[in-house]
């Protein structure tokens, strides 16, 4: 079996998962007032869950360009960490142009599967990215087109899918690491304060999420320095 085929097969479960989650993104984008093609363009050029969700919630307000940049950098900085981590174990032939092109596909799940490889071949990584990429695009198309047809009560419930995916990423780690549990609780408490306390609740949502995440992670880095060599994120 070629490296590409092996990668493609490994990516199928991720693709199916993305199909269902991006369906929700499509529904949410349309409910925010975007048209289907805008939702699909965002998905095909961005390929993030949290970043896109934060992105459209900034986009509905006019002129908040700096906020868009700041919130995207905070939300997506984890990809830099993954990229740095994966750059340590790629095959010698995986260099230059290939890194610039394939770096686009660095998502939490693709990174997680690629990290399990001993050395990451460029063809394997490309194959791995195919199903998730098209799953993400097709799901967005489906959600944004069908979102108008489905009953409202069903659409409302489907908005939880994307958060369910976030839970599935956080919870297993919070269970085994007390430090991760602490930093996530701090982040949540801070954000609840930003949503409900007077004055603080005037801060726009993108900035609030960024500030809470950064402060909680700084506290974590200060109280629980993370030492072990690890490849997950």
């Amino acid at each position: 079996m070629s490296e590409f085929t092996r990668g493609f097969r490994a990516g199928i479960p991720i693709g199916i998962g993305y199909l269902s989650v991006s369906f929700t993104f499509g529904i949410m984008a349309v409910s925010y007032g975007f048209s289907w093609w805008q939702a699909v363009i965002i998905s095909m050029l961005t390929l993030t869950s949290a970043g896109q969700l934060a992105g459209i919630s900034v986009m509905v307000h006019p002129g908040q360009y700096l906020e868009m940049l700041f919130s995207q950098l905070t939300i997506n900085i984890r990809y830099s960490f993954m990229s740095v981590s994966l750059s340590q174990k790629v095959a010698a032939s995986f260099s230059g142009m290939k890194r610039w092109l394939l770096g686009f596909f660095m998502t939490d799940e693709i990174f997680a599967v690629a990290s399990a490889e001993k050395t990451v071949d460029a063809k394997f990584f490309f194959g791995l990215s195919v199903a998730p990429y098209f799953g993400w695009a097709l799901g967005t198309l489906g959600g944004s087109v069908l979102g108008n047809i489905l009953p409202e009560v069903l659409m409302n419930s489907l908005c939880l899918a994307i958060y369910g995916m976030f839970l599935a990423i956080i919870a297993p780690k919070a269970r085994t690491s007390r430090a991760v549990l602490c930093v996530t609780v701090v982040a949540i408490l801070l954000h609840v304060m930003f949503v409900y306390l007077p004055i603080l609740n005037r801060v726009s949502s993108g900035i609030a999420v960024s500030v809470c995440a950064i402060v909680a992670a700084l506290i974590g880095a200060w109280l629980f320095p993370h030492d072990e060599e690890e490849n997950e994120a």
Binding site: F81, I170, T184, I188, L190, A208, A216, A221
Partner: peptide, 24 residues
């Protein structure tokens, strides 16, 4: 390194709560 390690979890946690409870 520690800061970068915690960032994914704090971002996802802050994005999920309280927004998810209010989402539907």
């Amino acid at each position: 390194r520690s800061f970068l390690y915690y960032i994914p979890y704090t971002v996802l946690a802050a994005m999920t709560f309280p927004a998810a409870v209010l989402a539907t």
